[in-house]
């Protein structure tokens, strides 16, 4: 019983300490806000960080890593979300709602913030042979089936170029899902559809293994 009471007090103490840490003192004004009032920091704290992390490094592979992503790409995608012009299932479910009221200034600020975060290095591949096969596809494509190389658009180190996104170090599951979406036109992109419409599941496994380990 004593043990239970002590742990109850501990739970309560943690809650009180956390609230006190907010450092609230006497109020002196009422500040009406409009939709554009939040800066990138507030948006990241209240929304983005819940899935993508404060520094753009998500833990769950359901959500992409945004750290060091190309600013132009983030900006373009947020605008597509806002316009509802990107309609893969996750875009519909999550980002249409999140981006619906963002202003151009907020979109630019968010893109700048995440692109300036330090990149994370990829995980060590547990299947070197598969990663090597993926490297060959990334750099040379599969010409006999009209699958073009990724390198010219995404860069020699998969760091991305302008509106072509950084792929290095991204969650493998996330990359795999996106490639499947492009292949089935679940995520609209004429370029990606044209270049990878014949890609097989084995080739997706290889190239994503390589990119996740970059």
């Amino acid at each position: 019983m004593r043990r239970l009471t002590i742990s109850s007090l501990l739970v309560a103490a943690i809650a009180v300490a956390a609230l006190c840490a907010r450092d609230a003192t006497a109020a002196d004004s009422l500040v009406p806000h409009d939709a554009a009032a939040w800066d990138a920091k507030a948006l990241i704290s209240r929304a983005c960080s819940k899935c993508h992390g404060f520094t753009g490094v998500s833990i769950s592979p359901l959500f992409p890593i945004l750290a060091a992503q190309q600013a132009s790409y983030i900006e373009m995608e947020l605008q597509l979300f806002r316009l509802r012009d990107r309609s893969d299932p996750h875009a519909r479910a999550f980002m249409w709602g999140i981006a619906r009221a963002l202003t151009d200034d907020q979109i630019r600020a968010l893109a700048q913030y995440f692109s300036s975060q330090p990149a994370v290095s990829g995980r060590v591949s547990s299947n070197a042979a598969l990663a090597q096969k993926g490297k060959l596809i990334y750099e040379g494509g599969v010409p006999e089936r009209d699958i073009l190389a990724c390198l010219p658009c995404h860069g020699p180190n998969a760091q991305g170029i302008h509106t072509f996104p950084r792929l290095a170090g991204q969650h493998r599951d996330y990359l795999s899902t996106q490639l499947q979406q492009f292949r089935s036109n679940g995520r609209e992109s004429e370029i990606m559809q044209h270049f990878i419409s014949n890609i097989t599941d084995d080739e997706i496994a290889a190239v994503t293994e390589y990119l996740a380990s970059k």
């Binding site: 907010r22 450092d23 609230a24 003192t25 006497a26 109020a27 002196d28 004004s29 009422l30 500040v31 009406p32 806000h33 409009d34 939709a35 009032a37 939040w38 507030a42 948006l43 209240r46 929304a47 819940k50 999140i98 981006a99 619906r100 009221a101 963002l102």
Partner: peptide
Amino acid sequence: NGYTLTTRPPLVSDTDDHKKNTL
């Protein structure tokens, strides 16, 4: 995450001398 995710700014926000929210 405590049901707090939103992209909507608050209608009113009291601030103290240190520009921290009190409401």
